[in-house]
Design a protein around this nucleic acid. Sequence first.
DNA 1: TTGATTATCTTACACATTGTAAATTAAGTC
DNA 2: GACTTAATTTACAATGTGTAAGATAATCAA
Lengths: 201, 201
Amino acid sequence: MKDSAKPRTDPRIVRTRQLLKDAFIELLQEMDIEKISVNRIAERATINRVTFYLHYRDIPDMLEKMADDMIEELQAAVEQPPPPSRSSDDIDSVKLVNLLEHIAANAKFYKVVLGKKRTPIFTERLLKMLSESVALRMKELGSDSIMTKAGIQKDIAIWYGSASLIGTIVAWIQHDMPYTPQYLAKQFSLLRRHQFIDKPL
Amino acid sequence: MKDSAKPRTDPRIVRTRQLLKDAFIELLQEMDIEKISVNRIAERATINRVTFYLHYRDIPDMLEKMADDMIEELQAAVEQPPPPSRSSDDIDSVKLVNLLEHIAANAKFYKVVLGKKRTPIFTERLLKMLSESVALRMKELGSDSIMTKAGIQKDIAIWYGSASLIGTIVAWIQHDMPYTPQYLAKQFSLLRRHQFIDKPL
DNA sequence: TTGATTATCTTACACATTGTAAATTAAGTC
DNA sequence: GACTTAATTTACAATGTGTAAGATAATCAA
């Protein structure tokens, strides 16, 4: 969006930012975020510490920008056209499969920003994105009448639906993605149809 | 557990720790956790900064201890006997109602540690607790055979169930608890029975 | 290619934060 | 009232933060 707006950026800028981001992800694999300083990031990125401040106000600001980028990439991945081969199987969950496949393809990144739970901003943003998808889909399907008939509050249904999505995805990442994106998506639709966890508490 | 093991603690210790915890929660209401220093905590608690280090290694250590306390209190709250009055309504979700009522009764605390998403350790711990409950309940109900018949992976079902629980609870907290604990618990059981959010993506 | 532009580097500084140490004061225990 | 232990005071070295000014180097535009 903002990047596609032509003002071709100086290659030094993209290089520096990439080095900083890569360094940050590396450090996040090695230590808790509390231990990561601008000093360390710059050192690992082999750029001068002062240069960091030419790009980001501080570390939280850097995280925010990285989360923005993540959402942008996720949105793009989700809208990917389905592979015409196995489109017959479950053509409906294509977007979910796209999402999961993109995560799997960038596992190193998502394992630290979503899997390790010390950078809540990324989970926060993804949850927001999923909530909007869930709300939109509910509107499209016109679930409203059915829900009111059953006495279900719409906003609670959205909380519930998006929470189960993000929570399951995060758990999947934390366990090193032991299932294929297709299989996990299939499980989602099965879980939505049946109910096996009555009265969890 | 560890406290009930008799070694009556010096009142100065409990006083100091309480002051520190209260100060921390206060500060967390006012600013992001990145801005909270040992300095500030001690100042707000009106104790000397050095004293902080007599009780906690650092701020993350303090958070861990506070999370331990939280889980302990939640466990105790969940096991509360049901009020004999309305026990007929839905006697099964008593524990969930107990949990939600305890959260509502300590809203100020839970609003910052679960509602504001900058202290993931608390959410982490609660999720762990809920996962164990969900897994236990699944075992008790013997859902295994039904699930395998439907082709549902057990661990994924646990992820899904606990995620929907914690996510909904957190969203409820973030929106200032607009529903009573009883109502929200009822909604949970309704949502588990019906399915309105087909193909969210 | 040259000149102008702009990103990065270098060095420096003031300030806050951290974690620890040693000696002193104050509160709680028996 | 004597003993024990928690909290305070003062101090210090180390690290991190954010900013400034000038020098260097890479990119761009002609």
